[in-house]
Write a protein that binds this DNA or RNA. Structure first.
Lengths: 137, 137
DNA sequence: TATGATATGGATAATAATTATTAATTAATA
DNA sequence: TATTAATTAATAATTATTATCCATATCATA
């Protein structure tokens, strides 16, 4: 059985076609889509699904830690089915958002904790630049 | 003469009491205030100043690179008169936002560039945790 | 110092993303 | 299958931000 189905059941949430559809969009992309983008991608297959349902599905997934929310500085959120906190990089020309391998950030948390006196629980690391394809132009 | 006055003049912007007031709030705080917070702080001294004026002043300052905009993941921006890109840390309990010394991030950009193939131009680094005072409770 | 061109401030309306509400529908389970 | 509780979808409400409009303040120039 699909993971998402099992987890929803375990946590007492209902398994609906809409939720599965929203989650599958996120599972099958590397594009870190916005709510709008997810909605648009689902339109052809689920023409009756409303934007509010996309929002609510994402809210449930976030609660269950099945997706993470990104804010790269736009006035809206993007979503990622990869819930491991990892850095992202955005192209300032074309707007695409990519993952950044995070092995180089291993000891960052400890260093920040000792510098600031905070007890660290998380981090959001965003980089900005020109992607390989935009660089060429 | 005040720096802000000189720069506004040089760039052909008019020097108004409102602009100076907004800038001074930012100069004299380490709190990374929101627009609302700036507005509230100015109310006693400038009771006729409107929220729109705060927004517009900040827009000018951002254009002139006199302030930087932060988005720590709230649904609003915070502002900092320190325009050098540096990491921030937010307390998940009380909401305060502090600076993080950035010497430890020196070679980060180069590493990210070589990993991703992007040409790096900037970064936003946010950490989350419990501040020393909230930790004690 | 006075004048006049023009950018700015302040009030308010508009916008856009998100959240709340609600009635009708649907799924889970006895 | 009936009951119950959760969910959907449509819509309204909310909230941060941006745009508009015009009286007014600023400042170069006379």
């Amino acid at each position: 059985m699909n993971d998402i189905v099992r987890i929803l059941k375990e946590k007492g949430f209902k398994v609906t076609p809409q939720r599965i559809a929203v989650y599958n969009v996120l599972m099958n992309t590397k594009e870190h889509p916005t709510v709008e983008a997810i909605y648009n991608k689902l339109q052809p297959m689920y023409p009756t699904m409303s934007l509010a349902t996309v929002y609510k599905s994402l809210e449930v997934f976030r609660e269950l830690n099945l997706v993470q929310e990104l804010n790269v500085g736009e006035d809206k959120f993007r979503y990622d089915a990869n819930v491991k906190q990892h850095p992202h990089i955005m192209c300032i020309d074309c707007g695409r958002v990519d993952d950044v391998d995070d092995e180089m950030f291993f000891n960052l948390k400890d260093e920040v904790a000792s510098k600031t006196g905070y007890e660290l629980v998380g981090q959001k690391l965003y980089f900005y630049g020109r992607c390989p394809s935009c660089k060429r132009k």
